[in-house]
Design a protein around this nucleic acid. Structure first.
Lengths: 222, 222
DNA sequence: CCCTTACCTGAACCCAGCCTGAAGGCAGCA
DNA sequence: TGCTGCCTTCAGGCTGGGTTCAGGTAAGGG
């Protein structure tokens, strides 16, 4: 599953690359539009994530050029926050979907999956941790046969832990994955969500699958 | 089920191709009339979608030539919006049905299905979600044995959700599927239709199959 | 055994996102 | 010409998810 990421904010690009790589995507990154266009034409990708504001050639142009060249690789555009207008323009130039910044990692992932699926290759993925099942496409979760309703943020945190089940995931990693990249609030928020998750996925079942590793982070285990 | 799509607006062609592919059609695309004619004579298609305004050879001519050559593949013509005149001419030259731009995807799909069925190869497909049955060919819907009358737009939205039952479908995806590709109005329209759908398919039955996933979209479940 | 540090969690606030009823516009039809 | 039904817009209200905060609890080191 190959992804081309065209994004000039290096920090964001880096975070996304790591995250997607962890999902099993092969990620190529370029930092400006012209390189992006070149990469996209020279290599077969399953999906392209394309920022709108880019040096040397903006996202719309890249998108339009690709379509002109009859390259129909699914494109997910990242538009500016307030650009209601941008959305229409993104779709106009041939993008398949868009996401306005700031966005959360989980939503991006869900959209990417949808695009890739539409592109032909079906791949229903659920993460299983013991009798806990996490379904990223439906943003759903259940323990055994019991459905557990989660809010989007709760789901995002749980997903971040489940992807690396058995490993310790640090609070800052969870923050990076589940919150907007521009989030700048109290890091304590992670603890709050861990607490909420335990109340939903562990306490009612007499489990303790969500373990605190003092000074390092949290671990989800079977 | 093979479809030949002859349409020179690349963006529209692309969207249609993706949509139809997602329905299980094998879609070939050409961008001008002469290529279209050639493709149609060289390959056996179940149905042809033919734009009227085309480079190199217009749709009427393509249609007439095919019929002259005793090729009776069902043809659906795409005519210009105001061309009341075009419709008559389309049917005169041997088309089986026509659709004026802009049209919605669901209507196109229904017409295609109708044509294909008329062409001999019946393929009644219904989407079943619990006891809810959606029949894209007839634009019908029922819960259990109770028939539920839906307006075309309501049906389009429901269809978009049903095609991916159990998964979260974002508002923008619903917009893209159920509205004209040129639609540029209030995205709130989706919420309005969700509301209307609930009033018809859920409330009267004491169900709540149409679930809001805050910040992500909607999900239709059994 | 105490102190520090890290973590837990209930309560309270705020507001984005969503819901929905009402009304206008428009096209088809009798 | 009026009627009917559907699409769309709009605005007000509300819900519940996100965030902050503060007081409490556990872990670990000296």
């Amino acid at each position: 599953m190959r992804v081309l990421l065209v994004e000039d904010e290096k920090r964001l690009a880096h975070l996304l690359k790591d995250g997607l790589a962890g999902e099993g995507f092969a990620v190529d990154v370029t930092y400006d539009g012209r390189d992006g266009l070149w990469m996209a034409t020279e290599n077969p990708y399953d999906v392209i994530v394309l920022d709108v504001m880019l040096p040397r050639m903006n996202g719309y142009t890249v998108c339009a050029r690709l379509r002109d060249a009859e390259n129909w690789t699914p494109i997910l555009m990242l538009t500016a926050k307030d650009g209601v207008h941008d959305e229409a323009e993104a779709l106009d130039t041939g993008a398949d979907d868009f996401l306005s910044k700031p966005f959360s990692y989980v939503v991006l992932l869900a959209r990417l999956r949808a695009l890739v699926r539409r592109g032909g290759h079906a791949r229903p993925v659920s993460i299983v941790v013991g009798d806990l099942t996490i379904d990223p496409a439906g943003l759903r979760c259940r323990r055994g046969e019991v459905n557990i309703p989660l809010t989007p943020k709760e789901f995002a945190v749980l997903h971040g832990l489940a992807r690396r089940q058995g490993e310790v995931v640090s609070k800052s990693e969870l923050l990076a994955q589940a919150w907007d990249f521009s989030y700048d609030g109290d890091p304590n928020i992670v603890e709050v969500y861990i607490s909420a998750l335990r109340r939903k996925i562990d306490s009612p079942f007499g489990r303790s699958s969500l373990v605190t590793v003092r000074g390092a982070g949290y671990r989800l285990e079977a």
